[in-house]
Design a protein around this nucleic acid. Structure first.
Lengths: 248, 248
DNA sequence: TCGCGCGCTTGATCTGGGTCAAGGATGACC
DNA sequence: GGTCATCCTTGACCCAGATCAAGCGCGCGA
């Protein structure tokens, strides 16, 4: 099967693409040097599982490139995605042995990993890291709570529109593309993964995407390439205040 | 209308009932003394709003006694509860001006508050506070993600059972009541509040509670007083692994 | 003691999204 | 170029939970 590969040649932190957004964002040069000593890269192919729920995790790390998902599964197979990990997002929890979720690479994925023990020790000595991690965790908590509203109270159509607007927004902020005019991006998820994120079935996802296309809210090229001619319209379809800060 | 009251006589941190679970759990005596200088108590009556979403928050704090809820509301009135605040839980976010949610007291409530600015400054100088806050935030994130599974994938009956088991568990851990045998507790929420937590209507909540009663999973005295004769049975009804750690 | 309101229950009916089922498109590999 | 698998779409039907509606019971204020 697909074999995971540990990349040996260390990249330089200073020119890391996620340098300014990851856990290490606030670190000084000397702190970076110490981090560099305990870091290593790992690559995963699309579809590979990074960690299984319950497995012992001996590392924490950041997504450098690619996309991963955090999912929870019930005994009977029902699954719910509980997080979408984009570049700069943090994986793992200091101070906990096992992973609470399945982490799966949905695209080819590169992660910058730190061995957990040394990282935890560094955290104690390096407030910049703990501060940044707290800030990131609070942001994730906000995102999770926003998602609770989506899951609990929105219609299927609103759910799809919400997901599209989140992906569009994240994509735009990552690529620093100007927001005016049409937004264009690729869906990083299959219909099934979207369904798992939204608490729907893949059939409903497909139908609602078709409906949004029919109504001119989005435009599709192939199955994955999306154009949003009017972002405000999409926000309305999502049931959000149309003012919601475009610049995260 | 109900008037909020600022309690002036400061209680002593050392003998505070939430001393060992709140943000200050890790603080040394001297750190507590400094906290004590910037702290004050506020009381709210059942039904009062502590903060409105969007309002400027000039404090953060801990729930000392009573219960509050965190809710989000859409323009058309649909509302979703995104958090249940029990004694020792933290309210507010360092490093952010406004509140993202409505915070409402559902029972009479006492909070231990800190002015935000001084608290933020103390956090920088007192790693014990930041560490504890990170730990608590990570726990809340786990809870939010567990709730995403409930909202996205569980049936109405499973949702009710999940809520009951959470309340039972929290109640048991708070009151250090032994878990063996029947669990007994009072529901701190109206049917409507439960519906808002679970992404259901209050009618469905009522019907499912009646059904669980009819099936002997729970026993009701009045509308709020619940007896759970067999906790394992309740966990099964919730769709959870029956092993899920009883001792949080 | 009465009456009123709030929180709750229960019934009847409707409907959004799930389920089951049948293909269609695309791309990898032989 | 054909086969196969994966991902996606669309249709027909069904059901869990929403919606609409009526009424109960308890606590509180007059």
């Amino acid at each position: 099967m697909l074999k995971e590969e540990t990349v040996s040649h260390n990249h330089n932190c200073e020119e890391c693409p996620i340098r300014h957004r990851a856990v290490c964002a606030r670190c000084e040069t000397d702190e970076l040097e110490r981090l560099e000593e305990i870091k290593y890269y790992r690559s995963f192919e699309a579809g590979q599982t990074v960690i299984w729920s319950g497995d012992k995790m001996d590392f924490v790390g950041s997504v450098v490139s690619g996309i991963a998902t955090l999912t929870q599964t019930m005994e009977d197979g029902r699954t719910q995605m509980v997080g979408l990990l984009l570049p700069s997002d943090f994986v793992g929890r200091p101070g906990r042995e096992g992973s609470a979720y399945d982490v799966v690479a949905t695209t080819d994925l590169v992660m910058c990993c730190f061995r957990k023990k040394p990282f935890e020790q560094m955290m104690e000595r390096t407030p910049h890291i703990a501060q940044r991690l707290l800030e990131m965790t609070l942001d994730e908590l906000d995102a999770a709570r926003e998602w609770m509203l989506v899951l609990g109270r929105k219609t299927a159509r609103e759910k799809i529109a919400s997901l599209l607007s989140i992906i569009a927004r994240r994509d735009a902020s990552l690529n620093l593309r100007p927001t005016q005019g049409a937004l264009v991006f690729d869906l990083p998820l299959t219909r099934e993964a979207m369904a798992d994120y939204l608490g729907l079935t893949l059939e409903t996802v497909s139908r609602q995407i078709s409906a949004l296309k029919r109504d001119g809210v989005i435009h599709l090229e192939g199955k994955r390439h999306v154009t949003v001619p009017d972002f405000t319209r999409l926000m309305e379809e999502a049931g959000d205040d149309a003012d919601g800060g475009m610049l995260a």
